[in-house]
Amino acid sequence: MSEKNQAIKAVIFQLNDEEYGVDVQQVQSIERLLHITRVPKMPDFVKGVINLRGVVTPIIDLKERFSIEMTEYTNSTRIIIVQVEDKEVGLIVDAANDVIDIPADKIEQPPEVVGRIESDYIRGVAKLDERLLILLNLNKVLNAEELIAIANIEA
């Protein structure tokens, strides 16, 4: 099989009007909004922790993480539980309702700025029919060192 025919399975979710994707391998589950316990002295995007079937799981709001416009949580708001390396984290997104195959040859290198998100966090963009999907680089998004750095600045 040539590389061009290979496809990436991605979970698609929404932040405002834009569609994003993360590799399905990194997704543990998708949850409805649960009660979140605030953790003090954390950057604003760290919303706190939830009880995910007995495991205390930190939750971050992706829109706040990327500093894009905030909206109220609604009925369709979801928490995507992802696992990156040894870290398990929940991401708050506006909606998550699709798993699709993205052919590797449809993925392009990200332009400098996509939807006001720094290109560091993006693995690539994919154009499928009329949809534009932004694939996230979760390792970067969940970089704990950055979290500490941010915490230090805020403190």
Binding site: K41, V56, T57, P58, V89, A144
Partner: peptide
């Protein structure tokens, strides 16, 4: 007792 996981490390006073 549960840990806060590997993402939130060094949480102040917790």
């Amino acid at each position: 007792l549960k840990s806060l996981g590997n993402y939130l490390t060094n949480v102040f006073a917790i």
